[in-house]
Design a protein around this nucleic acid. Structure first.
Lengths: 103, 103
DNA sequence: TTGATACATCAATAATTCTTGATATATACT
DNA sequence: AGTATATATCAAGAATTATTGATGTATCAA
């Protein structure tokens, strides 16, 4: 089983993480699933702003969502983070283009 | 010995990596030290553009430079990448704020 | 010391991304 | 049906980042 990602996927993940508000959101989600309203309370940020950043994160595959009634719950997709971690490892070791796990 | 980084450092590294030209540069450097002229040849990009992106990478601590005569050689700083890798691992495991290596 | 090479930096513009306030949509409650 | 809540989306503007071509600076070679 591969944890590899293409560079474009990696760039999407990196861009998604590389923003303070999104990072705050992600850190919050790392303790468990949250709805937008939870995130609003925790961060004190405007709803449209949070939704904007959640969308970026979701499109990058860093989080997933599930609707339940009026609420939408967001959750980290740790597989994406694991892939990214592995991608950085390969980058660092100069074996990004090799299929195998490297070294 | 810690490989930990503060969030701001991590964001700098992430931003630096999250750009196609910079990633191309980094991939090239992952096979060894290069001068700007090498990078120009390999990528076919304008010199000012390459210097611009090298500066971003350097300020983020992702690469280091050394001058030799008329040339400036750039090299990956794999320690920064290792730190970033570890930071992502911690983020994924929800233990970013714990001192220890986690799990 | 003149000319060429390697690179950095700058100013102007272009492109991208983020913020804000408003409006839209869907669900649930009464 | 009517109202309130949770969230998404949108359009306009603000802010940040990238590109381009030009110029500056240091080093070397003739």
């Amino acid at each position: 089983m591969s944890t590899g990602v293409a560079n474009e996927k990696a760039i999407d993940s990196l861009k998604a993480l590389a923003e303070p508000i999104r990072l705050e959101i992600i850190e919050s989600l790392s303790t468990g699933e949250k709805c937008v309203c939870d995130l609003m309370q925790e961060t004190g940020l405007a709803q449209s702003k949070i939704s904007f950043h959640l969308k970026v994160l979701k499109e990058a595959g860093v989080i997933t969502d599930r609707q339940s009634g009026r609420w939408v719950y967001y959750q980290l997709d740790t597989r994406t983070l694991k892939s990214l971690q592995n991608w950085i490892k390969k980058l660092r070791k100069g074996c990004l283009n090799e299929a195998a796990s490297c070294e």
